[in-house]
Design a protein around this nucleic acid. Structure first.
Lengths: 243, 243
DNA sequence: AAAAATAGTTAGGCTAACCAAACAATTTGA
DNA sequence: TCAAATTGTTTGGTTAGCCTAACTATTTTT
């Protein structure tokens, strides 16, 4: 049985590797992500190696073993199921659920998660639009684009966010966006690249930086042409959201 | 903020003092209850004293401070709310919920517990019939008798159990008893004190030891007392259920 | 290719929780 | 009352996780 700390290390490792596409990363990066000092990471890595959870040698890169990857996905699954419960059943605002789920994800009980999963109707996305892996560790990946990929007059449905910080999520709320809403691009400013979009009846302007963090699915309705290869890329695992 | 271990110590202290009626207890007893060695308890007590959570001196008895008692009741409240959720919403069998709630009770989030409480409809008893304190730490105590107090031909409603071990609870299930069920005493064996009771259509025999752990409310002869809240209105603390 | 910058490790130290073994105080009961 | 039994404490040791400071390896820059 893993300790909470160990779970957090492998979860961070999963996130960082999937996110960067590489299958191994360095101690400094890991330390930064976990909010501890590099020396601590080196320390812990020895323990994780002894437990066969990572493979790495001195001055080399770190990667998860298959076992550990499966375990990490299990933790991720719990995290996202809890987030779904917190938002959907308890009505907590989505920018608040992450920190609570960080605690709940470490509760050990298979029976509990099975029941919770059933209770929620076996969801496959969490309130941030992040995929919930199955019990077997499989992600049902949908190819994903960001709002910034849309061209003028194209429309799309919002399916997720790329930044799960409270600040960002509250901003999204304030702007009037939410998962599942329909967005149409009215125009893009050539000068500062601000994107003018219509959401419901409201017309708003958002920055590129913002649009990069809004995941959408094209609506085939009307005249949508598959623009470029950006759309076909990008499956496998994903995102820089919260793990 | 308390650590999980500290929370467990004050929870144990609350339970042991309430249970025994005394307001202080010894280190051995506490050690036994927590499954650690007396030396460890002595150790921890110093830390708890430094944090103003207990008052005790060398070779003296231990008691909770008012602050700590309030905190402990908060943990107990979380425990029982989670148990209620696990049984009622997720349908987990009551003998399984205790261990899971032991983990969940340490999750820190007031917003979460407020929402959960509301979600459950502000319950005041958990699945074992134990009282759930209010947010302010108040128990709405009902006077309580055990099944063994009943005389021949008296009847009562089951309202709780005094032993929350999995073994006992499964036995209760097997025998066909459950919270709220009506019990009538048909007879008591003079020889071995076995109690013959009727539950629904079934007639069964139970031991004194068993009957001591079944909490009941008398049903006034012949007719039913409606369960309105006049009966929930006493005060004081209560029980030896699980904490 | 050497110097500088960056990344990673080691050594030594800390705290929280635990333990066993030895010891000290208190309670009991003969 | 005083010895035995019980109860509680101290001491010294362990492990998990963390730290700082000093050091070493690797990578980048010039």
């Amino acid at each position: 049985m893993l300790t909470q700390t160990e779970e957090n290390y492998i979860k961070a490792l999963l996130k960082l590797t999937e996110e960067s596409g590489q299958l191994s990363i360095g101690t400094n990066e890991l330390a930064l992500h976990l909010g501890v000092k590099p020396a601590t990471v080196t320390d812990m890595l020895k323990r994780l190696r002894d437990k066969q959870l990572v493979s790495y040698e001195k001055y080399g890169k770190i990667s998860l073993t298959e076992t550990a990857r499966t375990l990490a996905i299990g933790v991720l699954r719990k995290h996202r199921l809890w987030e779904t419960f917190l938002c959907r059943s308890l009505g907590l605002p989505w920018h608040q659920v992450h920190d609570i789920a960080e605690q709940l994800e470490h509760v050990h009980s298979e029976a509990l998660m099975d029941r919770l999963d059933a209770f929620l109707g076996f969801p496959n996305v969490d309130p941030h639009g992040d995929l919930i892996p199955t019990k077997e560790g499989v992600f049902h990946v949908r190819p994903k684009q960001t709002l910034s990929h849309l061209g003028v007059s194209q429309s799309a449905k919002m399916v997720g966010v790329g930044d799960n910080s409270g600040a960002f999520l509250q901003y999204v709320d304030a702007v009037g966006l939410s998962l599942g809403c329909e967005i149409q691009v009215l125009g893009i400013q050539p000068y500062d690249a601000l994107i003018e979009i219509q959401v419901g009846k409201k017309v708003i302007k958002v920055s590129q930086k913002f649009a990069d963090q809004i995941y959408v699915e094209f609506l085939t309705a009307g005249q949508h042409m598959p623009t470029d290869d950006a759309e076909m890329r990008d499956l496998g695992l994903d995102r820089e959201g919260d793990l």
